[in-house]
């Protein structure tokens, strides 16, 4: 599918990043601005919805302005404005969607509502502009753990998802339990470098059972282990926990690729920024098991370039979204 000569402003406020970006033709990033609120949420050990919404309101205008300035683009040089309408936190989503609708009305631009997971998929197409479906994608973040087969643009099959906690949620909760702070993923990733990933054999839940994931039991196993062994080296615990999560994610992604016969795999979401997961995925590529497209860390974590990218495709495929369309916190991909 070719999307040509389309300049889209993308806006993302589904969780705790306020982001705006300008992308040409669905793949060329002119600017991508992300204001993280992580510091604001750190003392709570997770995103606090009310704080997130307020911070989005405070940041959104500056972030959009910055994205336009960095792109060297004015509003009237845009062809559309896209925003994530779900899934995410209701109050947070409303800020980005309302900003996009206001720009749409004031500048007479088409508004395009997009799905957050679909945006993560399109991040890979920014990374590799030649990339085309079919793909198998692993989306792993604080709120989501999904294996999706993308058979074509706009054609998805959800192969598996978590039956309890999201992978990133397990990182956040284990980090909080170990006193490592928030966000948990980077904290565990950092500390794990000093630990032995084989020190403790934590369970690999549902590793060889279908495409669904389960991380609640692993979280509990870490809690139980530390209670029984208060002397355990925290770095060893972090490294061993991380190894268990990564083993499951890699095995499931590979199994999904084999079962669907799709030879290109993609990862996205905040957990896809994990250094061990990235190494393991690249090892798969080197070993010739599958072709791996791994977006840069900035494209894996929440950003608006991926929103603008998918917005260009959605505009071409479906046309503009009516301004009455609401935010949908529990929006499903299919």
């Amino acid at each position: 599918m070719v999307v040509s000569r389309v300049r889209v402003l993308g806006i993302e406020t589904s969780c705790d990043e306020t982001a705006a970006a300008v992308v040409d033709d669905g793949r060329q990033v002119r600017s991508s601005v992300v204001a993280s609120q992580a510091d604001l949420h750190a003392r709570y050990g997770g995103v606090v919805p009310e704080i997130a919404s307020r911070a989005h309101v405070e940041l959104i205008c500056d972030v959009i302005e910055q994205a336009l300035v960095e792109a060297g683009s004015s509003l009237h040089e845009l062809d559309a404005v896209a925003a994530v309408r779900g899934p995410g936190l209701a109050g947070a989503l409303l800020v980005g969607v309302s900003a996009a609708k206001a720009i749409s009305l004031a500048s007479r631009l088409p508004y395009v509502a997009v799905h957050h997971h679909e945006a993560h998929l399109y991040a890979a197409m920014i990374e590799d502009p030649q990339l085309e479906p079919p793909l198998v994608t692993l989306i792993v973040s604080g709120g989501h753990t999904l294996l999706i087969a993308m058979d074509g643009h706009g054609r998805y099959r959800v192969l598996g998802e978590t039956v309890d906690d999201a992978a990133g949620e397990a990182f956040d909760k284990v980090a909080r339990f170990l006193g490592l702070g928030y966000p948990g993923g980077p904290a565990i990733d950092r500390l794990a470098r000093e630990g032995d990933p084989e020190a403790i054999r934590f369970p690999r839940p549902m590793r060889a059972e279908g495409h669904d994931f389960s991380f609640s039991g692993l979280k509990t196993a870490v809690v139980q282990y530390v209670r029984k062994h208060p002397e355990a080296d925290v770095a060893d615990v972090a490294a061993s926990f991380q190894a268990a999560v990564v083993d499951v994610l890699v095995d499931k992604l590979l199994a999904a690729a084999r079962e669907t016969g799709i030879d290109t795999v993609v990862a996205g979401g905040g957990v896809a920024a994990n250094s061990v997961l990235r190494e393991r995925l690249l090892d798969l590529a080197v070993a010739g098991e599958v072709r791996v497209v791994l977006p840069s860390v900035a494209l894996c974590t929440d950003n608006a370039a991926m929103v603008a990218a998918v917005g260009a495709y959605r505009l071409a495929a479906d046309g503009p979204t009516p301004l009455e369309a609401p935010v949908v916190p529990n929006l499903r991909l299919v």
């Binding site: 997770g46 919805p49 906690d165 999201a166």
Partner: peptide, 24 residues
């Protein structure tokens, strides 16, 4: 599934169920 991220998960059943996580 865990309601931690969304704070509230609503389910349809014979009786609708809301599953809420308020610790944050």
């Amino acid at each position: 599934t865990s309601p931690t991220f969304t704070i509230v998960q609503e389910y349809e059943g014979r009786v609708p169920v809301a599953h809420v996580d308020v610790y944050r």
